[in-house]
């Protein structure tokens, strides 16, 4: 059974459609990444799952129950984006306050708070006022408060925001540990590299729609691509390579050849050799998640532009009539 089960979820803010018929399933024990630009609808979806925001239509279930119920929230941890902890608390007192809201008894709280602050590297500053914390420390505290009460599902909205590279690595390791303990972790981020490094599965969201889902490996292995540099003065035979069925793109320094399934780069290299074109460099460039993401966003943008043009044309035609 999916831990998170969302189908045809829609959220409107007035005339703005923040989520457009989103359908998504997340299985137990995964680190699931939701990737998207700012304003894509990632945070809205998490907030609906936690009952902070009400859905317009569709269905959202968490741990087998309708999302947002009090019972479900007891079993969930959450780190919001742009969180603002009350500065009058210390790290410890804040966790005690939240622990009481979760119904934890004092001995449990004392034990779990000490452990959690130690895990995120804040044990020495637990009794300091939060207003004295740096941004990175607040982020670590935010992560601690998301898991200290032993939740089954943890939602993290931009968890590495404001954290230095060492801290990011530690957070990735912590998430891996939490995953090993059997928890499901749902991460929202616009930092592609972070998602690529920590997530088992990824969904890419653009303008309120899920445009692609899959494992990182599945998403990044879709296209084989080579970058070729010729000796100075040599001109790459673009037309002839294209005639062989390859997709070719050029920039100032390199020519990029994209292979379709069943094609081999040797065919291109043989052609260059037959034309006595001397090679300086041949490099296989594996697509990163960022390439995939940018391609998808561009495709989506082109799609929407085309739609816009079509609409504009239709409107213009009507006016002409």
């Amino acid at each position: 059974m999916a831990v998170i089960d969302v189908s045809n979820l829609q959220k409107d803010y007035g005339s703005l459609q923040a989520l457009k018929s989103v359908t998504l399933q997340v299985d137990s024990g995964q680190i699931y990444g939701l990737l998207g630009q700012n304003g894509a609808g990632k945070s809205t979806m998490i907030k609906i799952l936690l009952g902070i925001v009400r859905l317009t239509s569709g269905e959202a279930n968490l741990l087998g129950f309708p999302a947002g119920t009090i019972e479900v929230r007891k079993r969930v941890g959450y780190l919001p984006e742009d969180h603002a902890f009350p500065g009058y608390h210390t790290g410890e007192s804040l966790l005690h306050f939240y622990g009481e809201l979760y119904g934890m008894n004092r001995p449990d709280r004392v034990k779990r708070i000490a452990e959690s602050l130690d895990i995120v590297g804040l044990s020495k500053r637990g009794s300091s006022k939060i207003k004295t914390y740096s941004k990175g420390m607040k982020q670590r505290l935010g992560i601690a408060q998301s898991f200290f009460h032993d939740p089954e599902v943890i939602f993290l909205d931009e968890p590495t925001d404001g954290v230095d590279p060492v801290g990011r690595k530690e957070i990735r390791e912590l998430l891996a540990t939490l995953k090993d303990e059997g928890r499901t972790i749902f991460v929202n981020s616009h930092l592609l590299q972070e998602i690529e490094l920590m997530c088992d599965r990824v969904a890419i969201m653009h303008k309120g729609e899920i445009v692609r889902t899959g494992t990182v490996a599945e998403l990044t292995k879709t296209v084989e691509r080579f970058s070729i540099t010729l000796a100075p003065g040599a001109d790459f035979p673009v037309a002839e390579v294209k005639a062989l069925g390859f997709k070719v793109e050029r920039d100032d320094e390199e020519t990029h050849v994209e292979l379709k399934p069943g094609q081999s780069i040797d065919t291109v290299l043989d052609l260059l050799s037959s034309k006595n074109l001397r090679l300086r460099n041949v490099r296989e460039s594996k697509q990163t998640l960022e390439d995939i993401f940018m391609d998808l966003v561009e495709q989506a943008e082109r799609g929407s532009t085309k739609r816009g043009v079509r609409v504009a044309r239709a409107v213009g035609a009507r006016r002409d009539d």
Binding site: I52, R73, F85
Partner: peptide, 15 residues
């Protein structure tokens, strides 16, 4: 009710 503060609390099991 500040943004970022309320979300932290209302995501807890309290109405």
């Amino acid at each position: 009710l500040r943004k970022g503060t309320l979300d932290l609390v209302v995501s807890k099991p309290v109405g």
